[in-house]
Design a protein around this nucleic acid. Structure first.
Lengths: 257, 257
DNA sequence: AAAAAAGTTGACGGATCGTCATTCTAGGTG
DNA sequence: CACCTAGAATGACGATCCGTCAACTTTTTT
């Protein structure tokens, strides 16, 4: 039924598995030693493949980062799927999408930073075109999921677009706000700026303001979205957030710079 | 009258001038050859100082990026000052702040990307503490300027905080939205995603939604903020946006990788 | 004028990236 | 079973780049 699955299954399957293992390892290094600790030599040394093979998978070090960001987007897509299944009205489901994004950035700060750095020109310049394309495609799909909720809201009448506004504009604004909130919290966590503000609190408050501004019913005055936020959290807690690590022993390495 | 200006004026003045020239040159390279093209060797070769002297000014390559981001923040501060002087009601002045931010990111995409990359852990890890401190200080000042407008709005009654909300939260949300909008537009400009959306249009629309959600009077239904946006633009156009380039001849270099 | 302090230089060590000639391996052929 | 070949894997190597430091020059002090 599928269009054309590559015939050489044993080959390409092993290839895929190895690529996943390499990415997992890269992620591990990133978590442990920061971005400066991630070098191709180190990645080779800790893996069971050689440099040449590594470069058979990734065209450059930056390509590894882009690959990690693709990985992140796929996990995000999975979380978004959960959010869309939330049992509630449309504005709650939109809130669930924001929750998923927030939850991911909090649970996987390293990967979220990958998302940030992968959008940096220095990284994009040196990544393989195929992977960049894949990333763009995933981003489009995620955006489509957001627009799904908006369309549903328009259909059931809880949201009405002003004249001259398009669904894409609204989804863009949502994305921008979510991105801004989570991105700003990443570096600000260690800095003192905005100290004392809870990430979750700020998030839900921002979204409420935006949705109220959009006139999305029921307004925050008429509904306890704090409670919704909490209920949404439950369906994500049940689901496993992070997959088990493949290489738990990473101790025999020299200490980072 | 000044507290204690360093006595060795001729020395430190020359030093400051040279540092400015170096930063200008770095910016030039960045514009021309992208982030990959900026290397310390190249920066030295194109300047009239040696490597050692360069490292007398900047502790590392990343420190150069942080320095550029500090530079950007200073220019942003200048633009914010202009915005605060805009003759209008408080919500218009807030809009002017957003305009300044947007205008800067559009006019100086390279520097705006510096702001992004300088917040990256890989860069922060290797920048000099003094410069990082300076950056944080500037960010605080910018944020204070935002809060000034919010406080004024609270004072004149055009804005009222709901119970349990603080001014910092509101300024954070504003900052996050502005950052998200402009950051998302940066890579998307070259990509096809969101094609056909005008950055300025999206920006003003987002802000209107947020401010309406905050209940900031006059609401967008009762005031033509499109016209305000245009009027605000005038005071920025009069002011010079970009300073003249010091090294217009940058042609004798080898072509980038 | 001599000495001390401050500033500048560019060659060098170390680290990392990405390549490529060589080696290995799986699967087919006589 | 011996041989062959296409494709994959290897790791040594050249190139690049970062940041340092001993030697040298300029400025200031004595």
């Amino acid at each position: 039924m599928l269009p054309q699955p590559p015939m050489q299954n044993s080959r390409s399957l092993a290839r895929q598995l190895r690529e996943q293992a390499l990415l997992k390892l890269a992620q591990q290094i990133l978590r442990q030693d920061g971005f400066a600790g991630l070098t191709m030599d180190r990645l080779t040394a800790l893996s069971d493949v050689s440099k040449g093979t590594l470069y058979n998978h990734f065209s450059s070090k930056e390509d590894v980062l882009t690959a990690l960001s693709v990985d992140s987007l796929e996990r995000l897509q999975h979380l978004f799927q959960l959010a869309l299944n939330f049992n509630g009205h449309s504005r709650e489901r939109a809130l669930a999408l924001h929750y998923a994004y927030h939850r991911f950035s909090a649970a996987e700060p390293t990967l979220f930073l990958c998302l940030l750095t992968a959008a940096t020109p220095g990284v994009m310049e040196k990544s393989s075109p195929e992977r960049l394309l894949r990333r763009q495609q995933l981003e489009t799909e995620l955006l489509t999921m957001c627009q799904t909720v908006l369309s549903a809201a328009l259909a059931d009448g809880s949201l009405t677009l002003p004249a001259g506004a398009a669904v894409e504009q609204y989804s863009f604004i949502n994305w921008a706000l979510a991105f801004g909130c989570n991105a700003l919290f990443a570096p600000l966590r260690q800095l003192g700026l905005f100290a004392g503000l809870q990430a979750g609190q700020i998030n839900i408050q921002s979204i409420n303001l935006l949705f109220d501004g959009m006139g999305w019913l029921p307004l925050s005055a008429d509904w306890d979205y704090q409670a919704s936020w909490h209920r949404i959290g439950l369906i994500f807690s049940q689901q496993l957030m992070s997959d088990p690590l493949i290489h738990p022993t990473l101790n025999q390495t020299q200490e980072p710079a």
